[in-house]
Design a binder for these strands. Structure first.
Length: 161
DNA sequence: ATCGTCATATGAA
DNA sequence: TTCATATGACGAT
Protein backbone atom coordinates (compact mmCIF):
# COMPACT_ATOMS: atom_id res chain seq x y z
CA UNK A 1 0.00 0.00 0.00
CA UNK A 2 1.39 3.32 -1.04
CA UNK A 3 -0.05 6.45 0.56
CA UNK A 4 -0.24 9.94 -0.85
CA UNK A 5 -1.78 13.17 0.38
CA UNK A 6 -4.49 15.03 -1.47
CA UNK A 7 -4.92 18.67 -0.51
CA UNK A 8 -8.40 20.04 -1.17
CA UNK A 9 -10.38 23.03 -0.03
CA UNK A 10 -11.94 20.70 2.55
CA UNK A 11 -8.71 19.52 4.04
CA UNK A 12 -6.06 16.94 3.53
CA UNK A 13 -7.41 13.65 2.22
CA UNK A 14 -5.26 10.55 2.05
CA UNK A 15 -5.27 8.00 -0.76
CA UNK A 16 -3.89 4.46 -0.60
CA UNK A 17 -2.89 2.58 -3.75
CA UNK A 18 -2.12 -1.00 -4.54
CA UNK A 19 -0.41 -1.92 -7.77
CA UNK A 20 -3.85 -2.23 -9.36
CA UNK A 21 -5.25 1.14 -8.45
CA UNK A 22 -6.82 3.20 -5.72
CA UNK A 23 -8.00 1.03 -2.86
CA UNK A 24 -8.61 3.41 0.07
CA UNK A 25 -9.63 7.00 0.52
CA UNK A 26 -9.49 8.60 3.96
CA UNK A 27 -11.12 11.79 5.16
CA UNK A 28 -9.00 14.53 6.71
CA UNK A 29 -8.06 13.55 10.22
CA UNK A 30 -8.59 9.83 9.73
CA UNK A 31 -5.67 7.60 10.53
CA UNK A 32 -4.25 5.00 8.23
CA UNK A 33 -5.84 1.67 9.19
CA UNK A 34 -3.46 -1.06 10.26
CA UNK A 35 -5.15 -3.88 8.47
CA UNK A 36 -4.33 -3.16 4.85
CA UNK A 37 -5.72 -5.95 2.77
CA UNK A 38 -4.35 -4.44 -0.40
CA UNK A 39 -1.05 -5.64 -1.76
CA UNK A 40 2.11 -3.63 -1.86
CA UNK A 41 2.62 -0.97 -4.49
CA UNK A 42 6.15 0.28 -4.57
CA UNK A 43 5.67 2.81 -7.29
CA UNK A 44 2.68 4.82 -8.27
CA UNK A 45 4.41 6.32 -11.25
CA UNK A 46 1.24 6.69 -13.28
CA UNK A 47 -0.80 9.85 -13.05
CA UNK A 48 -3.22 8.14 -10.69
CA UNK A 49 -2.60 10.82 -8.14
CA UNK A 50 -3.60 13.58 -10.50
CA UNK A 51 -6.69 11.68 -11.59
CA UNK A 52 -7.66 11.00 -8.00
CA UNK A 53 -7.13 14.59 -6.96
CA UNK A 54 -9.18 15.94 -9.86
CA UNK A 55 -12.00 13.48 -9.35
CA UNK A 56 -12.06 14.15 -5.63
CA UNK A 57 -12.18 17.91 -6.03
CA UNK A 58 -14.95 17.59 -8.60
CA UNK A 59 -17.05 15.47 -6.23
CA UNK A 60 -16.45 17.85 -3.36
CA UNK A 61 -17.71 20.67 -5.54
CA UNK A 62 -20.83 18.69 -6.45
CA UNK A 63 -19.75 17.99 -10.00
CA UNK A 64 -19.35 14.71 -11.87
CA UNK A 65 -15.69 13.70 -12.24
CA UNK A 66 -14.52 13.58 -15.84
CA UNK A 67 -12.25 10.64 -15.35
CA UNK A 68 -11.72 8.22 -12.49
CA UNK A 69 -8.43 6.59 -11.53
CA UNK A 70 -8.40 2.78 -11.64
CA UNK A 71 -10.11 1.42 -8.55
CA UNK A 72 -8.91 -1.67 -6.73
CA UNK A 73 -11.62 -3.06 -4.50
CA UNK A 74 -10.41 -6.64 -4.80
CA UNK A 75 -10.57 -6.92 -1.03
CA UNK A 76 -14.38 -6.93 -1.11
CA UNK A 77 -16.78 -9.84 -1.38
CA UNK A 78 -18.75 -10.43 -4.58
CA UNK A 79 -21.81 -8.88 -3.08
CA UNK A 80 -19.94 -5.80 -1.93
CA UNK A 81 -18.35 -5.32 -5.33
CA UNK A 82 -21.76 -5.45 -6.96
CA UNK A 83 -23.08 -2.85 -4.55
CA UNK A 84 -20.11 -0.55 -5.07
CA UNK A 85 -20.41 -0.89 -8.82
CA UNK A 86 -24.06 0.08 -8.58
CA UNK A 87 -23.10 3.12 -6.53
CA UNK A 88 -20.92 4.40 -9.36
CA UNK A 89 -23.95 4.39 -11.61
CA UNK A 90 -25.97 6.81 -9.51
CA UNK A 91 -25.77 10.16 -11.32
CA UNK A 92 -24.69 13.31 -9.50
CA UNK A 93 -27.62 15.01 -7.87
CA UNK A 94 -29.75 11.86 -7.67
CA UNK A 95 -30.26 9.40 -4.87
CA UNK A 96 -31.43 5.83 -4.35
CA UNK A 97 -32.68 4.10 -1.25
CA UNK A 98 -30.97 1.08 0.27
CA UNK A 99 -33.98 -0.95 -0.76
CA UNK A 100 -33.82 0.29 -4.37
CA UNK A 101 -30.29 -0.93 -4.69
CA UNK A 102 -31.10 -4.28 -3.15
CA UNK A 103 -33.91 -4.72 -5.64
CA UNK A 104 -31.69 -3.73 -8.54
CA UNK A 105 -29.16 -6.32 -7.44
CA UNK A 106 -31.86 -8.93 -7.37
CA UNK A 107 -31.84 -9.31 -3.60
CA UNK A 108 -35.31 -8.24 -2.65
CA UNK A 109 -35.47 -7.41 1.01
CA UNK A 110 -31.73 -7.08 1.26
CA UNK A 111 -31.79 -3.39 2.11
CA UNK A 112 -29.94 -3.96 5.31
CA UNK A 113 -27.26 -5.98 3.58
CA UNK A 114 -26.79 -3.11 1.14
CA UNK A 115 -26.38 -0.71 4.05
CA UNK A 116 -23.68 -2.90 5.49
CA UNK A 117 -21.92 -3.07 2.14
CA UNK A 118 -22.05 0.72 1.80
CA UNK A 119 -20.49 1.04 5.21
CA UNK A 120 -17.67 -1.17 4.00
CA UNK A 121 -16.99 1.00 0.96
CA UNK A 122 -13.24 1.70 1.09
CA UNK A 123 -13.43 4.66 -1.26
CA UNK A 124 -16.09 7.09 -0.05
CA UNK A 125 -16.85 10.30 -1.98
CA UNK A 126 -15.45 8.95 -5.24
CA UNK A 127 -17.68 5.91 -4.94
CA UNK A 128 -20.75 7.90 -3.98
CA UNK A 129 -22.15 5.98 -1.07
CA UNK A 130 -23.50 9.31 0.17
CA UNK A 131 -26.17 9.22 -2.54
CA UNK A 132 -27.91 6.36 -0.79
CA UNK A 133 -30.67 7.43 1.60
CA UNK A 134 -33.24 5.56 3.65
CA UNK A 135 -36.59 4.98 1.99
CA UNK A 136 -38.08 8.00 3.79
CA UNK A 137 -35.29 10.26 2.50
CA UNK A 138 -33.62 10.17 5.89
CA UNK A 139 -29.85 9.95 6.01
CA UNK A 140 -28.77 6.50 7.03
CA UNK A 141 -25.19 6.66 8.17
CA UNK A 142 -21.82 7.48 6.74
CA UNK A 143 -18.36 6.14 7.34
CA UNK A 144 -16.80 9.57 7.57
CA UNK A 145 -19.55 10.97 9.77
CA UNK A 146 -22.95 12.33 8.82
CA UNK A 147 -21.60 15.87 8.51
CA UNK A 148 -19.76 14.88 5.39
CA UNK A 149 -22.79 13.13 3.96
CA UNK A 150 -24.91 16.24 4.48
CA UNK A 151 -22.24 18.50 3.02
CA UNK A 152 -21.79 16.37 -0.10
CA UNK A 153 -25.50 16.13 -0.75
CA UNK A 154 -26.03 19.84 -0.27
CA UNK A 155 -23.36 20.64 -2.81
CA UNK A 156 -25.05 18.39 -5.35
CA UNK A 157 -28.31 20.17 -4.74
CA UNK A 158 -29.99 17.09 -3.32
CA UNK A 159 -32.94 17.18 -1.01
CA UNK A 160 -33.04 15.03 2.11
CA UNK A 161 -34.36 15.01 5.64
C1' DA B 1 -47.16 6.92 16.10
C1' DT B 2 -44.33 3.10 17.94
C1' DC B 3 -43.05 -1.83 18.35
C1' DG B 4 -41.80 -6.50 17.13
C1' DT B 5 -40.49 -9.52 13.56
C1' DC B 6 -38.57 -11.27 9.49
C1' DA B 7 -35.41 -11.08 5.49
C1' DT B 8 -30.51 -10.14 3.59
C1' DA B 9 -24.74 -10.34 3.73
C1' DT B 10 -20.95 -10.16 6.62
C1' DG B 11 -17.75 -10.26 10.27
C1' DA B 12 -16.89 -10.54 15.17
C1' DA B 13 -17.31 -13.01 19.44
C1' DT C 1 -24.32 -20.04 16.23
C1' DT C 2 -25.73 -15.70 17.88
C1' DC C 3 -25.46 -10.82 17.54
C1' DA C 4 -25.22 -6.25 15.44
C1' DT C 5 -25.21 -3.39 11.26
C1' DA C 6 -25.65 3.06 7.40
C1' DT C 7 -33.01 -0.85 6.03
C1' DG C 8 -37.73 -1.77 5.17
C1' DA C 9 -42.39 -3.86 4.77
C1' DC C 10 -46.09 -5.44 7.49
C1' DG C 11 -49.21 -6.34 11.13
C1' DA C 12 -50.57 -5.38 15.89
C1' DT C 13 -51.01 -2.27 19.65
Amino acid sequence: MHWTLLPTSDGLFRAGYSSNGLCRLLFPGQDVPENLSCNEADEVDLDWEALTADALRAQLAGRTPEEMPPLDWSSGTDFQKRVWQALLEIPTGETRSYGDLALKLGVEGGARAVGTACGANPIPVLVPCHRVLAADQGLGGFSGGLDWKRRLLEREGTLFK
